[in-house]
Design a protein around this nucleic acid. Sequence first.
RNA 1: GUCUCCAUCGUCUAGCCCGGCCUAGGACAUCGGCCUUUCACGCCGACGACAGGGGUUCGAAUCCCCUUGGAGACGCCA
Length: 488
Amino acid sequence: MSENRIRVRFAPSPTGYLHVGGARTALFNYLFAKKTGGTFLLRIEDTDRTRFQEDSLKEIFESLKWMGIEWTEGPEKGGDFGPYIQSERLDIYKKYAQILWDRGQVYPCFCTPERLEKMRKEKELRKEIHGGYDRRCRDISKEEAMKRIEVGEPYVLRLKAPLEGSISFIDGIRGEIETPVTMVDDTVLMKTDGYPTYHLASVVDDHLMEISHVLRGDEWIASTPRHILLYKAFGWQPPVIAHLPVILSPDGGKLSKRKGAASVMDYKRAGFLPEALLNFLSLLGWNPGDDREIMSVNEIMEAFDMHRISAKPSVFDEQKLEWMNGQYMEHYDSAKLLADIEPMWAEKGLPVADFSAEYKERVVSLFKTRCKKVTEFGENGGYFFKDPEEYDAKQAGKQFTAAVKPALDKIVEKTDSVADWNRAALEELFHGIADELGMSAGKINPAVRLAVTGVGGGPDLFDMLELLGKDCVKRRVAAASAWIEKNV
RNA sequence: GUCUCCAUCGUCUAGCCCGGCCUAGGACAUCGGCCUUUCACGCCGACGACAGGGGUUCGAAUCCCCUUGGAGACGCCA
């Protein structure tokens, strides 16, 4: 037995994609485990067969891996406490339900979903919605119950909750939370289909898997008293339970797919870096206690402290995420970025295959500081692979003047004489031409930029010219000169 | 409706647990300016908050109560 070991889990339901709220929950568990030298395990809670989605599992795994949140026990990894998929643990839940049955702590309930539905409606009419199940089956005699079970009448197993008093527990983040028992009805533990409910399964699993701390979303606060009751019924010591605040969308409501991205993979597709998303998420409801914001996983992990987790819900501010992503982008490995960017270029029909990896990495380096998202590379920089087909009209009107044409022609004329094609030589060349023609560089450079790229903004001009190479620059400047000849 | 949780700049937050150092600090965004022969980065500055009301105290953003506002829960969903 590993007594005082920290063991935490992330236990998603495979009902859809992994949204950022879930990712944050996983992240905090992961950080806590890493920080304390504990174990972070993944458990799949698939006890609802009606909502199960096959693809979901893949998506959840992929999302976690992309973010670098690695589980050391769980599906794909194994471990001493498996299986880690609840639908493969049915016998275990049956066994523990039986224990409660033998102790008289549960009872079979034969109420149909229809009757329960009707009961709820009536209660609503009388404005007493709280209270839940009316406990009609609680006092059915053992004999009668057995008889009805034997004839095959469907039933669920309910926990006998106390009829008066209150239930309290110490939330790891909020402190004591006390709930009057009127809010806790007789919880269903086993469904008609033989599957356990979340409440039974998670309590049994957390105990069997020796989970020491449960960090979960705060939508579980109201259910925790049920779980406490269950731990008591089994005679088990509950783990430390802490509820993480929700993440809200900018309009104050729940984060949803409709209002932009909500799933981790959406953010990947939108051009965000995993390190940036992780960093950003870590700062939602937590902070290191000083002014640091840009932090590596290791720094975050070092500084991580459960006591600094806030109870206040926070709004997911995508603008700040973008800023943060830009910060990461600037220092990101160009080769790594290129792997994501190259397909985007290719998709736009750019002949990227004709260029060397070194060339392409340099293009990426040139753009890194001015892009906030990976996707922006795909939208810009086409001119590194293809001559501009047209010039930005507004810029052309401003830069492509008759006055600048001689300078462009001079550049075309003199490029061949540049022995060492680098930015220093080019600067010198341009200066010489400017002096010779009595023009300011401020007049010539923007025109060259437009000639070479077709647009008004972009990386440093001389860095670009150096990378583009002599032939390309000569060709494009000549083309611009011809354009002026024709259009001005 | 009932119960529970939450409440500092538009947003993320520091400070709150252990009242005075808070004329409330930082970051994003916004607006100015500087830098730059482009754009971006960077730098400087401005704007901007203790939800309201009562207490307790010599003193409250910090402790207590009420109000208001927000969120969540009230399933054979998790």
